[in-house]
Computed example of a mutant assay.
Amino acid sequence: MAQFKVGDKVRHETYGDMEIMYGPFAGRAATPSNTVYVAERVMTGWEGAVSENTLTPIPETPTDPRREVVARTIATRICGNRVTRAEIEAEYPRADAILAALDAMETPADKPRPLAVGDKIRILEDGHNGAKVFVGDVLTVEYAHRDVFQTGAPRLYTRGVRWTFEAKDAGTGWERVTADTEVIDGVTYDLTARYRDSMGDVWARQDDGLWWVCEWASGNPATLGTNPDTDNESYRDYSLADVIEKFGPITRV
């Protein structure tokens, strides 16, 4: 059975790298020495008949899909519009060097996309832009157009009028919320924040998603242990909804 097919990349013991163009053509006894292919020499474009026993396969390696485009462009600039496969592949080393240099260049950070309906923001100042909002409020964008957007927050002194915020105030009056949030009884909570309960103890979410007291009202850190002043064994593994129900209301620290 023939070892190679048209299109295979092979290495000839004398001619170097080649590509199978035609074949196989087997003699009466289909042995490797009697099986012949017509192959093209990569570097020169020369075609000739070669025996199977003089060829070894070149393993296929993943290549950058941009490589072919760059190499063809270089070959076309040098040789004109009608270029051979050999002329294109001869430019592979140069194409590889160009792509490596481009990949090594520092890529600028992507500009954040504009706010869209459904995004969340956190208020950074009470009464920002004349709206009835307070520091720590997490609001959902309900309308956005170019550099202005609206949430459900009303104007400070006008009942029922939805007020407008501006993109230019990002970082001073509001910030985009990219962290996980949870809505409980219509209130949006930032799950990466810490919250103080009605007794002054501070709660924080742990890696398993459950909430623990991390700091007592006294300011002492809460730990798991035998010290009655710091032990929080009875204040661990609560859901946020349970924290609110049993120890609320809670406020963001």
Rank of each mutant, 00 (worst) to 15 (best):
M1H: 12
D8C: 07
V10N: 06
R11M: 09
H12V: 02
Y15M: 08
G16Y: 13
D17L: 15
D17S: 14
D17E: 15
D17Q: 14
M21S: 01
P24C: 12
A26Y: 10
N34E: 15
V36T: 09
Y37T: 08
A49E: 12
L55G: 02
P62Q: 06
T63Y: 15
P65D: 05
R66P: 02
E68L: 15
V69Q: 11
V70P: 09
R82L: 14
R82C: 09
V83L: 09
A86P: 03
E89N: 07
D96L: 09
D96E: 12
M105H: 10
M105T: 06
E106T: 12
P108V: 06
A109V: 13
A116E: 04
I123P: 00
H128S: 02
N129Y: 01
F134D: 00
V138K: 08
T140V: 07
V141R: 00
E142M: 06
Y143K: 03
H145Y: 07
H145L: 06
R146V: 04
G152F: 13
T158H: 10
T158Y: 12
G173W: 05
E175W: 02
T181A: 03
V183T: 14
V183W: 08
D185A: 12
V187P: 00
Y189A: 01
M199Y: 14
G200K: 05
A204V: 11
R205H: 11
C214M: 04
W216C: 01
N220R: 10
T226Q: 04
D229W: 15
T230L: 01
N232E: 05
S234G: 08
A241F: 04
A241V: 02
D242N: 06
I250M: 04
R252C: 03
